[in-house]
Every structure is written in structure tokens, then in C-alpha cells.
């Protein structure tokens, strides 16, 4: 009987959460908008840095036949599986007052969160771009050269063929960092109005028993991930 009651309450909470989510979104709740905006700003900036650095490096690694590329691949693949909380700890130690980068004064600011998320997303973008470029048919590269392409044109042709894989790399990185909580919690501190993002707010609201608000935030997080995947499918021509 009690168990059934508990389940009713939970289902109730979910229903109320969904209802509140719609209400908060429609009402453009300023607190909620602030959290969404900061999440997108931190993740967007980290993704931009990772993409600007990771796509050219990944493409270069995919195109070149470097000595020891097996070792580079192993390092990148390890980086792709970095536990966010470990990255958070590393960035925390670097940025803490006694750390080597403490003078920057970034700890518990969005800058620290961007740094942590960049470290998490960079190997993802680089590694998946490298894999996408390497998976392009080698015969196409030879054919492009035979047609009189310069080295730059040849590299561009291979990258263009790998574009779906490169976009998938960026979307995968987006999904990885928009939903991570360990690193941003450690280095951002989840300070209301300053460093509170969707994931850290969900943790806080759940701990406080504010399930409805937590669910509302969860729904928005899912909607963002869903939108990113829709964009990917659209780019792949599957939508």
C-alpha cells in the first residue's frame, strides 16, 4: 500500500514537473532563462574552442602518416574517455589560489567551467575528426591528386568527404559537455546567478526535493540534446 502510494507521488511529481516545465518555458522565467543562457554560453564557447583547434588537428592527424601515430591515437582515445570529474579536479587544482594558474582568478567563474569543458570536448572533436578523415576512401585521395589537385585542394576534398563525420564529432562533443555535471560543479561551484547551469541546477533541485523544477530543467536539457541531433540528421540529409 505504502509502496503504491510512493509510486503515485513520483508519477505525480513527473506529471507536475512536465506541467511546470511548460509553464516556466512559456512564462520565460528569468531564473530559468539565466540558467539556460549560461549553459549554452559555457558549452558553446568550450565547443567553439574545441572545434577551432580540434578539427584542423584531427584532420591533420587523419591526413598525415606520422611516425608513432598509433601512440597519438591511443592518447586521443584515452582522452575521449576522460572522466569529467577527474578533469574538474585537475582544473580545480590548476586554478586554485595556490595552483600554477591561480593568478588568473578563474576558479568559481564561467571561465573555469569553459576551461574544464574544453579539456573534455577537445579529444572528442579531435579523435572523431581524425577517424572520420581516415575512413575516407584512400582511392578518392589518389584520384583527386590525379585530377591535378594541389595539396591544399586534396586535403580540402578529403575533409569535405568526411564532413558528416566531422559534424557528428562536434555534436557528440556538444552532447558530452552540455550533459556533464562533475567538472562544472567542481570548478564552477554552482553559484546562483553566476555559475549555475542546467546540470548543476538539477542536482541542487533534486537534493532540495524540488522535483518539479528539476524535471523542468531535465526536459530542457533533453530538448537541447534532441535539437542538436536533429541538426545532425538534417546535415546528413536523413531528415
Amino acid at each position: 500500500m505504502e509502496r503504491g502510494c510512493a509510486r503515485d507521488i513520483q508519477l505525480n511529481d513527473i506529471a507536475r514537473g512536465l506541467e511546470q516545465a511548460i509553464r516556466l518555458i512559456l512564462a520565460a522565467d528569468p531564473e530559468l532563462l539565466g540558467i539556460i543562457f549560461l549553459s549554452l554560453r559555457v558549452t558553446g564557447l568550450a565547443l567553439l574552442i574545441s572545434t577551432l583547434a580540434g578539427v584542423p588537428i584531427g584532420a591533420g592527424l587523419g591526413l598525415a602518416r606520422l611516425r608513432g601515430h598509433g601512440l597519438i591515437t591511443a592518447i586521443l582515445y584515452t582522452g575521449m574517455g576522460l572522466p569529467p570529474v577527474v578533469v574538474g579536479l585537475f582544473v580545480y587544482l590548476m586554478l586554485s589560489r595556490s595552483g600554477p594558474l591561480g593568478v588568473l582568478g578563474w576558479l568559481f567563474t564561467p571561465s573555469a567551467m569553459v576551461a574544464a569543458q574544453t579539456i573534455i570536448s577537445f579529444p572528442l572533436v579531435t579523435g572523431l575528426t581524425m577517424t572520420a578523415v581516415r575512413s575516407v576512401d584512400p582511392a578518392l585521395r589518389v584520384q583527386v591528386r590525379s585530377l591535378g589537385a594541389t595539396r591544399v585542394q586534396e586535403a580540402w576534398a578529403v575533409l569535405a568527404e568526411a564532413r558528416i563525420g566531422v559534424v557528428a564529432a562536434i555534436v557528440a562533443a556538444f552532447g558530452g559537455i552540455i550533459s556533464e555535471v562533475g567538472a562544472v560543479m567542481l570548478v564552477g561551484g554552482n553559484i546562483a546567478g553566476r555559475t549555475r547551469v542546467l546540470t548543476t541546477a538539477i542536482v541542487l533541485e533534486t537534493r532540495q526535493g524540488e522535483f518539479a523544477f528539476a524535471i523542468a530543467l531535465g526536459v530542457i536539457l533533453l530538448a537541447l540534446a534532441f535539437t542538436a541531433n536533429l541538426a545532425l540528421l538534417r546535415l546528413q540529409g536523413k531528415l
Binding site: D137, L140, V142, Q143, S146, L147, G148, A157, E161
Partner: peptide, 26 residues
Amino acid sequence: VTTVFQRPALRRATVRENVAYGLRLR
């Protein structure tokens, strides 16, 4: 000088874009 190989390596593009590719490179 150019080669037509046994297995045609075509770009992920339309037929017209593939045929015009050598001109675009130049």
C-alpha cells in the same frame, strides 16, 4: 596527365558536380 582507375572514386556529390570537379580544381 590524368588517370581513370578501374574502380571509379567519386565524391559524395551529384553527377554534374563530379564531372565538373577537375575544372573546379583549375
